[in-house]
Each structure stands twice: as C-alpha cells, then as structure tokens.
C-alpha cells in the first residue's frame, strides 16, 4: 500500500507539495485523515490491552504461597459466584493467544506480564511518533491548500 512519510525512504518518491493542485492536495489530506483515525483507534485498543495486562500483573501480587487454602468466590457468570479454595498457588495458567494456554510459576507469570506491558507500550510509542509525523504533513498540506485557494481568489 502507498505510504506517506516526511523522512526519505528507499523506493519512495519525493513530491513537492506546492506542485500539486487543490484536488490532489485534498485527496492526500483525506488519505492522511483516514490514517490518523486508524492510529487513534489502534492507540485506544493498545491502551485497553495495556490496562488488562497491568491488572493481571497486579492480581498476581495477591497470589502468594500464604494464600494456599484460602477461600475465594469463583464467578460462574457475571452475577453468580460459588465459593472455592485456592489450590496450588505457586502456579497459574496464562492465555498466550490463538487458544493456547501455558502453566507458569508466579515469577515467570509476573515476568510475562511485564514483557507484555513493555511490548504494548513500545508499540504505542511507535504509533504516537508516526501519528505526530503524519499530522505534521497534514498541517503542511492544509496550509498549502489554503495558500492556493487564496491565490485563486485573487486571480479571479
């Protein structure tokens, strides 16, 4: 798919924005707006994922060897619970995606969530950086389009 970037990259064509006509500029702006929207959406989903991993990691703090045998309420549905006893508190089973689950001890599980949080945060930073770059290009396009419009009005 076509890419728009302010920094030069291999296999990319450099275009002087001032050489484009108003219609081309508006198409370009639309494309960038779409991309920016997508970025916002992705950031939202990543934020949700980050919070989930954080919650899971924090919950692990409460799962200690001392908790063995303690009573808990297990949710059967969103509004119905049955009492249960904690058993084997040094191991947890984690969903790693594509329907696979692995058993990990508490330390490995904590490490897992730490890694996931780091990964998601890194992705968010990347998207934020890209979004900033794209919105800069978008601003430049809007500016040039306005300039061209003003020129046209003067001429007519």
């Amino acid at each position: 798919m076509a890419q728009i970037s302010a920094t030069e990259q291999k296999g990319m064509q450099q275009i002087d924005l001032t050489t484009l006509n108003i219609q081309q500029l508006s198409t370009l702006k639309q494309q960038l707006d779409q991309e920016l929207n997508l970025f916002q959406e992705s950031l939202g989903s990543l934020k949700i994922a980050q919070t989930k991993f954080q919650n899971s990691g924090e919950t692990l703090e409460k799962v200690t060897p001392e908790a063995e045998g303690k009573e808990i309420l297990v949710p059967l549905t969103g509004s119905m619970y049955v009492p249960g006893k904690l058993h084997e508190t040094n191991n947890v089973i984690i969903d790693i995606g594509t329907r696979y689950y692995v058993e990990k001890d508490i330390d490995a599980a904590k490490d897992y969530f730490q890694r996931k949080i780091k990964f998601v945060t890194e992705q968010m930073e990347k998207i934020q950086y890209l979004g900033l770059e794209k919105s800069k290009i978008r601003d430049a396009i809007v500016e040039i389009a306005e300039m061209k419009l003003a020129q046209q009005q003067q001429q007519s």
Binding site: Y100, Y101, V102, E103
Partner: peptide, 10 residues
C-alpha cells in the same frame, strides 16, 4: 518455555 513446560489448548 522449558522443555517440560505444560501447555493447554482450549
């Protein structure tokens, strides 16, 4: 995962 790691499939 270690070689004797336990894996489950849902």
């Amino acid at each position: 995962l270690p070689d004797d790691g336990k894996v489950y499939k849902s």
